[in-house]
Amino acid sequence: MNYTIFRDGQQYGPYTLADLQRYVASGDVLLTDLASSEGMGEPVPVSQIVGTIPVPLQAAAPSAPAIEYPNPPNLHWGLVLLFTILTWGMFMSVWGVVLSFWLKKVAPSSRALYFYIAELGCLALVFALGMASVVAHGATTLIPIVQLASFVLTLIARYSFRSSMEEHYNNVEGIPLTLSGVMTFFFSTIYFQYHVNDIVRRKRVEQLQLVTG
């Protein structure tokens, strides 16, 4: 059955009962408005037609699933420092690749991984040239050049990682993060590992608070 609505001398409709219920729920049709349909005599207030019939609720749009970002490699920053000392700094470069590989999953636009890999390649080349010079009983002029390239790539990798970390956590996950440029220069992956571990800890505390209410 269709209904026509009358208000202030104006006529609206016709509407089905479902339409009428929806418009009442949204406030577009008032319960005091008059309504009429075929077979009815005089128009009656909408409240008499709707009565106690429950107003159907619109189904809520499904919310987008929360993105679960992978946790960083679980290694205490103190161990990163220890292994770096024991390996004369080599572990710092290797761990930079490990961390930047994780960051690439979290922030696909990050390019730190490429610079860290290039840095490792330069270190491997320096080692190979050094061995070759020992065998040939003479130093090669390429070693200082490759070492300089390795140093430049190291700086680019560190600050690229820092930039990607701050951009992701501040703008995507909404976790305030500010990384010191000085600490990044001197401690790089040790410093980064400390902060990613701290972020994981903060997330776990927040989840526990949500569960416990």
Score class of each variant (00 low, 15 high):
Arg204Gly: 08
Asp33Ser: 14
Ile53Arg: 10
Ser133Val: 10
Ser37Pro: 03
Asp8Gly: 06
Glu38Gln: 09
Ala112Ser: 15
Ser93Arg: 00
Ser100Gln: 09
Thr4Leu: 12
Leu86Val: 08
Leu129Met: 14
Ile53Asp: 13
Val46Trp: 07
Leu142Asn: 13
His195Arg: 13
Phe91Asn: 01
Ala112Cys: 12
Lys105Ile: 10
Ala60Ile: 01
Tyr116Lys: 01
Asn171Leu: 06
Lys104Gly: 07
Gly9Cys: 09
Ser150His: 01
Phe83Leu: 13
Gly96Arg: 01
Val44Gly: 14
Gly89Met: 04
Asp19Leu: 13
Ala124Asp: 06
Asn171Glu: 03
Ser188Lys: 00
Leu75Tyr: 07
His168Glu: 05
Tyr12Trp: 13
Ile5Ala: 09
Glu173Phe: 06
Ile199Leu: 12
Gly174Leu: 09
Phe185Ala: 01
Ile143Pro: 08
His195Cys: 04
Phe151His: 06
Ala25Trp: 04
Asn74Lys: 10
Gly51Arg: 15
Leu142Glu: 13
Ser109Asp: 09
Gly41Arg: 13
Asp28His: 05
Ile143Val: 14
Lys105Tyr: 15
Ala18Trp: 05
Gly213Val: 05
Ala60Leu: 09
Arg201Leu: 08
Val46Leu: 12
Pro54Lys: 14
Met165Gly: 05
Leu31Phe: 07
Gly39Phe: 12
Ser36Lys: 15
Val172Gln: 11
Ala149Lys: 10
Thr178Leu: 04
Gly51Val: 15
Asp19Trp: 08
Val80Gln: 02
Leu34Pro: 08
Met183Ser: 04
Tyr114Arg: 06
Phe101Asp: 14
Phe187Leu: 03
Gln193His: 07
Ser188Asp: 04
Leu113Ile: 09
Pro62Arg: 07
Pro62Gln: 11
Pro56Asp: 03
Trp88Gly: 11
Gly130Pro: 13
Thr189Asn: 05
Val24Ile: 13
Leu208Tyr: 12
Arg202Thr: 08
Trp77His: 06
Ser188Val: 01
Trp77Val: 02
Thr184Leu: 04
Asp28Leu: 08
Thr84Gly: 01
Phe115Leu: 15
Thr189Trp: 03
Ser109Asn: 12
Ser180His: 00
Met183Asn: 04
Gln11Asn: 15
Lys203Leu: 05
Ile49Pro: 06
Arg204Ile: 15
His168Arg: 06
Phe187Asp: 00
Ala132Met: 11
Val200Cys: 09
His168Lys: 03
Leu123Glu: 00
Ala35Gln: 14
Ser180Trp: 00
Thr140Arg: 15
Val98Asn: 09
Val24Tyr: 04
Asn74Cys: 07
